[in-house]
Amino acid sequence: MDWLFIQLATAFATVLSAIASIAIEKRLGILCVDVHKPSKPKIPCNGGFAIFIGLVTGFSLLLYSGYVDAKHFEAFTLSIIASFVIGFVDDLVDLKSRWKIILGFVSAAPVLLLGVYTPRPWIPLVGYIRISNLYPLLLLVAFTVYQNGANMIDTHNGTLPIFVLFTHLFAFLLKLLTESSIDSCLPLLTVIVVVLAYSIFNVYPAKIFNGNTGAFILGVTIPLMIAYYRLELYYIMASIPMFINGFYYIASVKGFLQKESVKRPTFVDEAGCIHSSKDSLAPITLVRLVTGFSRSGLSEKELVTTLYTVFMLSSLISLFLVMALGYR
């Protein structure tokens, strides 16, 4: 049962790193305003360090115990390091949107250069098809889409880690229910443990924000697991909330604009309720769509609970649909 020790050690490293990050950022005054709360509290800005340390610790223990080989370990860690650096630079200098898109391809490089992918995705009613020339290009797109899509859905306390958590959790169940043993699923389980341990500090009411550093790392875990486990269809279906959020945002602002350049899609009233913006120039987002159904607005707790439920149902339904379509 050394795999259980690995997961416990990974969770401990993540929690300890999160606690340390909160303490250090408070001492250094690295605080951000939680704009969706009436009192506008200031909390630590960047939980990316805790996520990074948790993932590297977990994958290192998997390598040491023989659950992953050196090539996969290098691909995982180098991709995570790349997303960490890109996110951290973005936190420091606020990269332009075009650079975020371009640099998203960098996180895919270790996976492609080391060849730790199988260019045979599963298609319903067809089975596994070989697309050797196209698959690397699709992976490149997947890495930048998920890295930036994760950043865009990171709007309220816990929305991003909960989205990533449920997406990976039901992927893990899918593998166990179809063909895989627990040992072969340990990389995926390790990601789940890190995200779960970190979520304690980011769910409502958040004790620390993810920052672009954390958002990029969380986002890149999805294409990493897609490449490793060949669950392309499941992950695409489970990610529909993220795709809806990104598509409507880009369509409504007619391009990849900096968030500082567009109007806010929602506003908070004096009672702390979040309302959909009535401004036709404000971007359409998943949060704006959800709050638009309530005339009196939603408290932040009600809003994030609704979003958490949407993410869970999206992943659960995707699991059932993929199995019903004959995934093996």
Rank of each mutant, 00 (worst) to 15 (best):
D90Y: 12
V268D: 11
S199Q: 10
K71H: 03
V290A: 11
L286T: 03
G297M: 04
A75V: 11
V191G: 08
H72T: 14
L281D: 15
L16V: 13
A20Y: 12
I86D: 10
F163E: 12
V106I: 12
K100H: 06
S276M: 10
T309E: 03
D90W: 12
V141P: 11
G211A: 04
S199A: 06
T118M: 09
I81Y: 02
A109K: 02
I30L: 15
N202H: 13
F320G: 03
E270C: 07
L103G: 12
V191A: 05
S294H: 12
L196P: 12
A11I: 12
I53W: 00
N151V: 08
S318N: 04
G54N: 07
L176E: 08
V68W: 00
A142E: 01
D269K: 00
I153F: 01
G326P: 11
S252E: 02
V195E: 13
G87Y: 12
L313I: 15
D34I: 00
N46I: 14
D279E: 01
K175Q: 13
C273N: 15
V304I: 02
M1A: 12
F163V: 01
M323D: 07
I86P: 10
I240P: 00
F12K: 09
K100A: 11
I222M: 06
Q258C: 12
V93W: 14
P121K: 04
K96H: 11
L134I: 14
T309S: 15
F256D: 12
I129R: 07
Q258S: 15
E260R: 15
A70N: 00
K301P: 11
S252K: 09
A50F: 03
R288Q: 04
K100C: 01
H72P: 08
I153T: 11
V310W: 05
C45I: 14
V141W: 10
P119Y: 13
I86K: 04
L224V: 05
L224A: 02
W122G: 05
L95N: 06
L103K: 13
V262F: 08
Y249C: 10
R264N: 05
I51Y: 03
I53R: 05
L307K: 03
S252T: 04
P161R: 00
D69H: 06
I153P: 00
S314E: 06
T159E: 09
K278W: 06
T144G: 07
I162L: 06
Y117Q: 03
L137S: 11
P41L: 06
L139Y: 03
S261P: 09
N133K: 14
L307V: 01
G297K: 06
Y229E: 08
D154H: 02
V56M: 09
A271S: 15
L139A: 10
I86N: 10
I51P: 07
I162P: 10
S60R: 10
N202A: 09
L125H: 12
